[in-house]
């Protein structure tokens, strides 16, 4: 299978990967610096900028808010998205083709437009408070991932197993929880983790919906960068990267990382 590749192409690939990994290495390095300004390579090793994250109340608050929003909106998206993905696969004949397009709409509509529209209609028009408005926005943001990942898992599931259980007298709900769901378990785990990281990292929707008192971590980072240029943000970035590593480990064990290329 291996054919020779032109040396120039190999050189280009090496440069591309330096370009990809280099900036992140620089972020980690400057997070460890003992200086009050951002510098690389780090001068004197110190973890004090990590302590500084938790010393700043706004970071403590927004980390908790971000985690809450990620958990709640992912849970809602799973509860409404799994039945929808199941219906799209199991009852394909009775459902119109546009229904599957409907569930990818949140990807097609620019996030900024969605965020602004939610601000205008939901948060201002219907006076929905900040926290539930953020939950609504993030649920829409992650719903397409649920539908897509669960659909991909269900595509490998043989519905004959479900029919066998039903014909032997198992009630539909029990069949779903004992036969179907265990077979797509890895899909559910992967969907959860992808939704979670997408929600944690979101800027474009949250930027319109956060407000006085309630903000998310990325929005707090943007606000902090505009005022201070110290290594605190580099440390927060390292925490977020650690989360990415955990996410990748889970995705690799469930779907395989190449799934992300599809």
């Amino acid at each position: 299978m291996t054919r020779p590749v032109h040396p120039l192409l190999i050189a280009l690939t090496v440069l591309v990967f330096i370009f990809l990994v280099g900036p992140l290495v620089i972020v980690v390095g400057s997070a460890l610096s003992d200086t009050t300004y951002l510098t690389f390579p780090p001068q004197g090793l110190s973890l004090r900028w990590f302590e500084n994250i938790f010393a700043i109340a706004a970071f403590r608050r927004t980390i908790i808010t971000s985690l809450q929003i990620a958990f709640i909106s992912t849970a809602i998206a799973l509860v409404i998205g799994i039945p929808a993905a199941y219906a799209l696969n199991r009852h394909r004949i009775q459902l119109p083709a546009w229904l599957s397009t409907l569930f990818v709409l949140p990807v097609l509509v620019p996030e900024l437009v969605l965020g602004f529209s939610l601000l205008k209609s939901v948060a201002t028009g219907f006076q929905v408070p900040i926290f539930p408005a953020l939950i609504i926005g993030h649920t829409l943001l992650v719903l397409p991932y649920v539908v897509r990942v669960i659909s991909a898992s269900l595509a490998n599931f043989d519905f004959a197993a479900e029919e066998a259980a039903v014909s032997l007298g198992s009630p539909p709900l029990k069949t779903f929880f004992t036969i179907v769901l265990p077979n797509v378990r890895s899909g559910v785990i992967a969907a959860f983790i992808l939704c979670f990281i997408t929600s944690i990292n979101d800027v474009s929707i949250s930027i319109f919906l956060t407000g006085p008192g309630i903000s998310t971590l990325p929005i707090q980072i943007l606000a902090h960068v505009e005022q201070f240029f110290d290594p605190t943000i580099a440390s927060v970035s390292v925490l977020l990267m650690a989360l990415t590593v955990a996410v990748m480990a889970v995705v690799e064990r469930t779907l395989g990382l190449t799934f992300l290329a599809k």
């Binding site: 900036p23 690389f40 960068v225 970035s237 977020l240 590593v245």
Partner: peptide
């Protein structure tokens, strides 16, 4: 994949430092 799953803010911030 690693940069892809790392947030936009973190990746843009990296270039701010550079």
């Amino acid at each position: 994949v690693f940069p892809l799953l790392t947030g936009v803010v973190v990746r843009s911030f990296a270039w701010l430092i550079i």
